[in-house]
C-alpha cells in the first residue's frame, strides 16, 4: 500500500526565552525524531497524554508548523520544498477538525458563511453554486438547508462539530486530521460523530489521522496507530497487533486507564502515577522512565532504539529490545526503586 503521508526523522523544537528575549533558556522538544507513514485510505491513530506533542505533529503534517529537522512528504513530495503557490494548493487537500467545537467556529458567522469560507478563500464567487454545495455538505453531516442562516450559538456541541466537519470536507480533501474531535463532547454524542466520520471516510475515500487519548475509541476507529510520550514514539504499527500484544509499558498503562462500564464489586481504578514531565531539555534516556513501573537503571540514560519486533509493529523499550552493548552504566538492568525516580535526584 502506498503512503500518503511520510515523516522522516521529524523534530519540532520551540525556543524558551529567559527574562530577556536573547537569553535562550532551553527548548521545548515538542516532537523529537519521529518517523512514520500513513497509508492511503486508512485511519491512523495518534495517541498520548496532554502535552505529548500530538497537535504539534499533526500541524507539521498539514504544513502549519515547519519542522526544525526532518522531512514531511505528502504523496511523496517534500511539503516544505514546494514553491509557495504549489504549497498552498497542496495544503488545501489536507484539512483539520479541531477538538473544541465551541471556540473553533467564529460566532459572528452563520453556518453558510462558516462552511463556504474555504471555498471563498480558494476564489469561488458564484453564490448559487456555493449555496448548493453548502446544502449538499450539510446534508452529508446530518444537518439541513434550514440551518443555513443560523449561528453557532444556536447549536449544541455535537452539531457544532458537524459544522466543523462540513467545513473541513468542503474542498474535497484527501487527507484529514481529526484532532480529538470528540474530547469536548458528551459520551452519547461521541458515537454519533465517530460514526459520521467513519461513514464519510468510506464515502469520500478519505485518509484520517485520528488523535485521541482514549484507547477504546482508537481501537474501534483505527487501522494503524502510533503511541507518543513527551515528543517521542513509544510504539507504533498495526492496531490489531498492538492491541493483541501491547509491548511498551506506556501503551499497557493507557489501555489499563480506560474505565470499563461494567459494575464490579472491587471497582478497581488502575492508575499510572505521576504527570508528564516538562518537555524542556528532556532526559537523554527513555523519556518514560520516571513513570515506568518496570524501569531499570539503564533506562534513565540509555536511549532505546525504535525497532520492528514483528511485521509492522515497532517499539522503543529496553525491556523488549534489550540494551545495546556499549556504554552501559553499572547495574543497568537492575530494577529502579521508587526513591530513585523522585525528580531532582
Amino acid at each position: 500500500m502506498t503512503e500518503i503521508m511520510t515523516l522522516r526523522n521529524v523534530s519540532v523544537h520551540f525556543p524558551v526565552r529567559g527574562f530577556l528575549p536573547f537569553l535562550k533558556k532551553g527548548e521545548i522538544q515538542a516532537v523529537s525524531d519521529v518517523s512514520l507513514g500513513v497509508r492511503r485510505g486508512e485511519i491512523f491513530g495518534l495517541v498520548g497524554e496532554s502535552g505529548c506533542g500530538k497537535t504539534t505533529l499533526a500541524n507539521t503534517m498539514v504544513g502549519l508548523v515547519k519542522p526544525t529537522a526532518g522531512q514531511v512528504l505528502f504523496e511523496g513530495v517534500d511539503l516544505h520544498s514546494l514553491p509557495r503557490e504549489e504549497f498552498k494548493k497542496t495544503r488545501r487537500r489536507m484539512q483539520m477538525i479541531f477538538q473544541d467545537p465551541f471556540s473553533s467556529l467564529n460566532p459572528r458567522f452563520n453556518v453558510y458563511q462558516l462552511v463556504s469560507e474555504p471555498m471563498v478563500i480558494r476564489g469561488e464567487d458564484d453564490e448559487e453554486t456555493m449555496k448548493a454545495r453548502v446544502v449538499e455538505l450539510l446534508e452529508m453531516v446530518g444537518l439541513s438547508a434550514q440551518d443555513l442562516y443560523r449561528y453557532p450559538s444556536d447549536f449544541s456541541g455535537g452539531q457544532r462539530q458537524r459544522i466543523g466537519i462540513a467545513r473541513a470536507i468542503s474542498l474535497n480533501p484527501t487527507f484529514l486530521v481529526c484532532d480529538e474531535p470528540v474530547s469536548a463532547l458528551d459520551v452519547s454524542i461521541h458515537a454519533q460523530i465517530l460514526n459520521l466520520l467513519l461513514e464519510l471516510q468510506e464515502r469520500l475515500n478519505l485518509t484520517y489521522v485520528f488523535i485521541s487519548h482514549n484507547l477504546a475509541d482508537v481501537k474501534k476507529m483505527c487501522d494503524r496507530l502510533a503511541v507518543m510520550y513527551l515528543g517521542k514514539l513509544m510504539e507504533a504499527g498495526d492496531a490489531d497487533k498492538i492491541f493483541a500484544r501491547p509491548l511498551h509499558p506506556y501503551t499497557q498503562a493507557l489501555i489499563a486507564a480506560v474505565l470499563d462500564i461494567y459494575f464490579s464489586e472491587e471497582r478497581e481504578i488502575v492508575v499510572l502515577p505521576g504527570d508528564t514531565p516538562s518537555p524542556i531539555n528532556p532526559p537523554p534516556g527513555c523519556r518514560f522512565w520516571q513513570r515506568c513501573p518496570k524501569a531499570m537503571r539503564g533506562c534513565k540514560t540509555v536511549p532505546p532504539a525504535f525497532l520492528e519486533v514483528e511485521e509492522d509493529h515497532f517499539v522503543a523499550c529496553h525491556l523488549v529490545n534489550g540494551f545495546p552493548n556499549q556504554d552501559l552504566p553499572e547495574g543497568f538492568d537492575q530494577p529502579m526503586v521508587g526513591r530513585e525516580k523522585v525528580p531532582g535526584r
Partner: peptide, 19 residues
Amino acid sequence: GLMAAVPRLTDEKKKFTQI
C-alpha cells in the same frame, strides 16, 4: 442507551453504538 454509548475495548471495530 447511555451505557451502550460508552466505548469498550472489547467492542467490534468501526462501529459505535449511538442513541
